[in-house]
């Protein structure tokens, strides 16, 4: 099967107001992502990784330029259409987790499936599987306030992956994880990537992640300075 283009940005610019001046967080980014990618955005802190992920996910809008996701120009989408796009095709993991505080771990992971109106039995199966992936079967009933940073991060990852979306946008998914957990989760992601063709786009400085990437895009000061294919991802050989 030919790998189709899922995401394309065209001359993307993002300014943030900073006092009287404008701060350029993204500067003229033109880039495409195909299906089955396993790509990392790397670069120093403040280089615009999160900003780019947010704009791709239609959580934020660019100052100039175009973003096309699943063939749709996100700049022209209504609230409702953007919500639908996110609900059906996109899974997010946030740098700050953003779990729903009053829900249990189980309910947090279940939430995207409720929005998709999935049948209860199927839903339960998917939730339990996702919790199994991230190793949180014993924390189903806990609330976010009772979790450690790494556990919260894993809930966030389970929530992004539970619906097996076409695209997962993962912002620093391993920042708070130990080596063993990082490894397990990345293996899971690779499995989804290979079996279901899920596209992963990471923002990360973590060498553990970088070792698994098929493609590495380096950002500096809001510009793409390098876009490299990783021919033989070394991490993949070490399972």
């Amino acid at each position: 099967m030919e790998d189709q283009i899922l995401i394309a940005t065209e001359r993307l610019v993002k300014h943030y107001p900073m006092g009287k001046h404008l701060f350029t967080a993204l500067n003229d980014i033109t880039i495409t992502f195909k299906s089955r990618e396993f790509t990392g955005l790397v670069g120093p802190s403040g280089s615009g990784k999160t900003t780019l992920l947010n704009i791709i996910g239609a959580l934020d809008s660019p100052t100039r330029g175009l973003v096309r996701v699943m063939g749709q120009d996100t700049g022209t989408l209504s609230h409702k259409q953007a919500a639908r796009l996110r609900s059906i095709y996109l899974g997010f993991t946030f740098q700050t987790y953003n779990l729903l505080p009053v829900y249990t771990v189980y309910e947090n992971v279940e939430f995207p499936l409720l929005l998709l109106d999935m049948a209860p039995a199927q839903r339960k199966k998917a939730v339990l599987q996702a919790l199994e992936w991230v190793g949180l079967m014993d924390k189903q009933k806990s609330r976010p306030s009772q979790l450690s940073g790494g556990e919260s991060q894993r809930v966030s990852i389970a929530r992004a992956m539970v619906k097996a979306p076409k695209i997962v946008l993962a912002d620093e998914p391993t920042a708070n994880l130990d080596a063993a957990n990082s490894h397990n989760i990345l293996q899971m992601m690779i499995k989804l990537n290979e079996e279901l063709g899920t596209t992963f786009i990471f923002a990360s400085h973590d060498d553990k992640v970088i070792g698994y990437l098929k493609r590495k895009i380096t950002l500096t000061d809001g510009k793409v300075v390098e876009d490299a294919r990783m021919d033989l991802p070394e991490g993949r050989n070490t399972c």
Partner: peptide, 14 residues
């Protein structure tokens, strides 16, 4: 923030 999360997860505004 919770509302932002709901939006990010794809819950429609209405």
């Amino acid at each position: 923030k919770e509302m932002g999360t709901l939006m990010a997860l794809g819950m429609p505004r209405t």
